[in-house]
Amino acid sequence: MAELNTGDGGGGKGGKVRSKKQNSKVDLTAMVDLAFLLITFFMLTTTLSKPQSMSLGLPDKEDKPEDKIEQKVDENRTLTILMGANNQVKIFRGFLATPKLAPKTVAYGKDGLRKDLLEQKQAVLAYSTAKGKPDQGIIVIIKPSKKSNYRNLVDVLDEMAIVGVPTYAIVNDFSPEEAKLLEGNPAPAAVPNP
């Protein structure tokens, strides 16, 4: 009379207590979602945050100028890149006084410097082959002016790698004529860009 029956399926037979079987399965969908989200995050951040680098080798600096060994190179093979302000470069091949390619102003990038570099590379290769020395490729002399910035330098070095210039050097000395060429032109906007 005073008993409190909690189990409803008991039916009063012998007092067997049936514990209800709990479902042991947990829904893992949300957990898997979260795990994959984190995996994606870590994958993207780890691979992208590693810095890239380009290695640059410079020639030995001679302390005594008289020790310098003058090395003559064929002026037909040397392309000089003068890096100026406002992301403009001037290029010429040969000596400035008697250029094989007259100085011209180009911009950085695919349509500017790279096109000219590829053309000049072919021209030099044709010249060397005609002379019977097809292994002598183009020599590029990079002259960064004080007004050029670091991005320009990296861009030019990158072009060297893309175009596949066999020999290039960074030279810091400007001859007066070269300085004049870089300074002398009017504002870059007035220069017609071929």
Partner: peptide, 20 residues
């Protein structure tokens, strides 16, 4: 900076760049 490195005969070094 490059000059300082070259004064110590460090002629090869890396330039850190981003990925294009």
């Amino acid at each position: 900076v490059m000059d300082i490195l070259q004064d110590q005969k460090v002629n090869t070094f890396s330039l850190v760049t981003g990925l294009r």
